[in-house]
Design a protein around this nucleic acid. Structure first.
Length: 447
RNA sequence: GCCCCCAUCGUCUAGUGGCCCAGGAUGUCAGGUUCUCAGCCUGAAGACAGGGGUUCAAAUCCCCUUGGGGGUACCA
């Protein structure tokens, strides 16, 4: 409950996010939700959630749940709702009947014999003063009488939307600009009812990386996919906020609090944006680096488990050490899992090109034997002692350290790219490190 | 077809008539750090879609063309 004092501080701004539950929440929808949410929070208004489930064929409870989950994951909490249009059928019916009574709508039967209520569109010019686009005008003679109540008793989108926005006291309709051409129909409805018009703000759509409409073939398009691939919600929110809005300076990393403080529709852009996964990755990496490893590492556990790693014997301390070692090297949790597989399996895969390049060369067998001998002696198998011992070895042999590091790296990790080799060996432990070295010498080098 | 929206580096954007031979970020390239890669640091290349106006002056205003997107459903 809000106190009287809090009510007094609130503005009368009321906005909503109104998705249809026909699929996952995709990033375009998420961005629309975010803009509404930011607008509400900035203005100390109300943000409500309404599920537009008037398409009986395509709406599913699973999709509704996925949308709710995604909203929560992103941190876009709502103040009222979720309201379901399917619960409000009698309201739409009442309003539709009313329009028929006033001769503003009529029953109509189509070729298939289905009987619906159709709204009479009057000829004229309708102007909307969009908060983002300015004045847009339409010749309503070009718009035909449209169905408002379907044969199945469900309202159509334009009708339910207007009835609900009016009844729920929505002051600002912030939605994708694919709805611009629906607006004159909706205004006609507002006028027929005598409802007060809300403000309209049509924000541009988000396009796929090739500039075409976002679809399945663009890869990850839903919020849940980004979650499952190991992106951070705050990074996705930051990225989405900057798609179509800018804080007015050169700032790229911006906290939620700053977004709320600075958000304004005046700084929203008109042009549609292409979602760029590369920059999204960079931004996620920035967020990952900004979070202390102790705080970050618990979140990684689930991703390892999902990839099939048995984590029951992995201690929190060890996991944190691993995350620390890779902290600046991974951009998503999935990326971390991909980079560190060799830590978790007893038999690792060796990259053939790396083996060819660094192991199947003259003198490598002997070199690695020397390494094995040197580090076998070590009492303390840690970064410092490993480094001291192996640097001393290269000095003794008169070779550059990189001549030793790469073959060693391939032996231990199976690949030519990894975090620091001493740290890696320390984390892997003496036993496993020696085993892999031994295996490499016996099986992979030229004898 | 008709109606509507949009148009600055590859991408996201700053820019609202002079501060812009256009700034930042990302990505790319080069150099540095270094056991590899990543990271980090430094530097470079990279855009006002085209054409007409208006104006002393246009990325910014107007028109046309072109391109992209959306709508034109008993989908939302």
């Amino acid at each position: 409950m809000r106190t009287e004092r809090e009510k007094g501080l609130m503005s009368n701004v009321r906005v909503r996010f109104a998705p249809s539950p026909t699929g996952y929440l995709h990033i375009g929808g998420a961005r629309t939700a975010l803009f509404n949410w930011l607008f509400a929070r900035h203005n100390k208004g109300i943000f409500l959630l309404r599920i537009e489930d008037t398409d009986q064929q395509r709406s599913t409870p699973e999709a509704t749940q996925a949308i709710l989950d995604s909203m929560q994951w992103l941190g876009l909490n709502w103040d009222e709702g979720p309201f379901f249009q399917s619960d409000r059928l009698s309201i739409y019916k009442k309003h539709a009947d009313n329009l028929v009574l006033q001769n503003k709508a009529f029953y109509d039967t189509d070729a298939e014999g289905r009987k619906a209520i159709r709204f009479k569109m009057l000829d004229g010019v309708t102007e909307i003063n969009d908060l983002i686009h300015g004045v847009i005008s339409f010749d309503t003679a070009l718009i035909e009488d449209f169905v408002i109540l379907k044969a199945d008793g469900f309202p159509t989108y334009n009708f339910a939307c207007v009835v609900d926005d009016a009844e729920m006291g929505i002051t600002h309709v912030i939605r994708g600009d694919d709805h611009i051409s629906n607006t004159p129909k909706q205004i006609a409805l507002y006028n027929a009812f005598g409802f007060k018009l809300p403000e309209f703000a049509h924000i541009p759509m988000i396009l796929g990386e090739d500039g075409s409409r976002l679809s399945k073939r663009h890869g990850a398009t839903s919020v849940t996919e980004y979650r499952d691939k190991g992106y951070l919600p705050q990074a996705l929110v930051n990225f989405l906020a900057l798609l179509g809005w800018s804080p007015g300076n050169d700032q790229e990393i911006i906290t939620l609090a700053e977004m709320i403080e600075k958000f304004s529709l005046k700084r929203a852009v008109k042009t549609s944006a292409q979602f760029n996964n590369t920059k999204m990755d960079w931004m996620n990496g920035q967020y990952i680096k900004s979070i202390p490893v102790e705080q970050l590492s618990p979140y990684t556990r689930g991703f390892f488990e999902k990839s099939g790693v048995d984590m029951t014997k992995i201690s929190a301390e060890w996991l944190t050490a691993l995350v620390r070692l890779y902290h600046e090297r991974f951009k998503t949790f999935q990326d971390l899992v991909n980079q560190t597989g060799f830590f978790f399996s007893s038999t690792i895969e060796y990259d053939t090109a790396s083996v060819e390049k660094f192991l199947k060369k003259e003198g490598i067998t002997n070199l690695l034997k020397e390494v094995l001998a040197a580090i076998s002696q070590l009492e303390a198998f840690d970064t410092k002692h490993l480094e001291d011992s192996l640097r001393a070895l290269t000095t003794k042999l008169g070779v550059g350290f990189s001549k030793l590091a790469q073959p060693l790296r391939v032996s231990i990790t199976g690949r030519s790219v990894s975090a620091g080799i001493f740290e890696t060996m320390e984390l892997l432990g003496k036993e496993v490190s020696l085993q892999r070295l031994d295996y490499t010498i016996k099986n992979l080098c030229n004898q």
